[in-house]
């Protein structure tokens, strides 16, 4: 799959934003007034900023409101509704925290659930696609949710939870990579089933439909990520999980906490880039590629 910067920025940033909102909704950290305002501002910049990046991916962003209508069938529509719901509920809760020094527990709890649901709906947009076997598996949603909770814990300065979640997420991340590598072969889709010509013999792409490239090849066939996959996985693992744990285990200091957050963000961007760049869409088989 083509790793579109708009989608990588969107899923990563909004994952962090809604992860932080989840913790804020549960009253962690327990600040009020101006410090609470700073935490909410960071969460909204990340969540709303991510959503804005997603509109750059649209051909007609001016029609984006229509995307709230098909929640009965479309995960993308459900994501939009959950995101707006979470942002509204958490804004009400944030007003209580910042201006009235109140912890409206029920509203915060609902906001936290909606925030996590938003991340879940985002993950289902990818996990539902049978056409991309590497995404169409049970670990895709746990990976997105674990990463959002990890990032949220880091940003919410919940050190103990963050250390636990970093280790937990790293395990899910590695498991996702290992399982993902066998998914295309396990899906049973190959050039023979794609063309239905397997009963005659081995199928080989002889001539593509056009001499030039096309939308399908630009969007679905991407080989650079796969070439460097092992190096990028190592970088993602070290930056995203190993270094943040080390920084958090050092004697506490704001500068180390900042390093931990920045390393984690860089690591998750690398992981998310690979999530797209490494994924094979079955339409590539019609071109003899993957």
């Amino acid at each position: 799959m083509h790793p579109a910067p708009s989608i990588i920025l969107f899923t990563t940033l909004s994952g962090f934003g809604f992860g932080l909102l989840t913790f804020l909704g549960l009253g962690m950290p327990n600040y009020t007034g101006f410090i609470a305002f700073v935490f909410f501002a960071i969460a909204y910049v990340l969540a709303v900023g991510g959503l804005l990046f997603s509109t750059f991916h649209l051909g007609h962003p001016e029609r984006a409101l229509k995307a709230f209508s098909q929640w009965r069938s479309s995960w993308l529509s459900r994501e939009g509704i959950c995101a707006v719901g979470a942002l509204i509920v958490m804004a009400i809760y944030g007003v209580g925290r910042v201006f009235f020094a109140q912890h409206w527990g029920i509203i915060g709890g609902i906001g936290a659930i909606l925030s996590l649901l938003t991340v879940y709906t985002t993950s289902m947009i990818y996990a539902q696609l049978k056409t991309v076997p590497r995404w169409n598996m049970p670990l895709t949603s746990p990976l997105f949710m674990a990463l959002a909770i990890t990032g949220g814990a880091l940003l919410a300065a919940q050190v103990k939870i963050a250390i636990f979640m970093l280790i937990f997420s790293a395990i899910i991340q590695v498991a996702y990579w290992v399982m993902g590598d066998g998914r295309l072969a396990a899906s049973g889709t190959n050039m023979e089933t794609a063309t239905g010509l397997g009963h005659i013999g081995k199928v080989k792409a002889f001539e593509p439909p056009h001499t030039g490239t096309n939308y399908l090849m630009r969007e679905f066939i991407h080989v650079v990520g796969r070439k460097h996959a092992m190096k990028l996985r190592t970088i993602a693992l070290v930056l995203g999980f190993v270094l943040p744990v080390i920084f958090l285990l050092l004697p506490f200091g704001h500068i180390f906490a900042l390093f931990a957050v920045l390393c984690h963000i860089a690591g998750i961007f690398t992981s998310r880039w690979l999530f797209f760049a490494q994924a094979e869409h079955v339409v590539g088989l019609y071109y003899g590629k993957r």
Binding site: H57, L58, G59, H60, E219, F220, H281
Partner: peptide, 12 residues
Amino acid sequence: CIGCGLCAWACP
């Protein structure tokens, strides 16, 4: 159509 491209992703 908002041009999100998800339908093209879903088509094998």
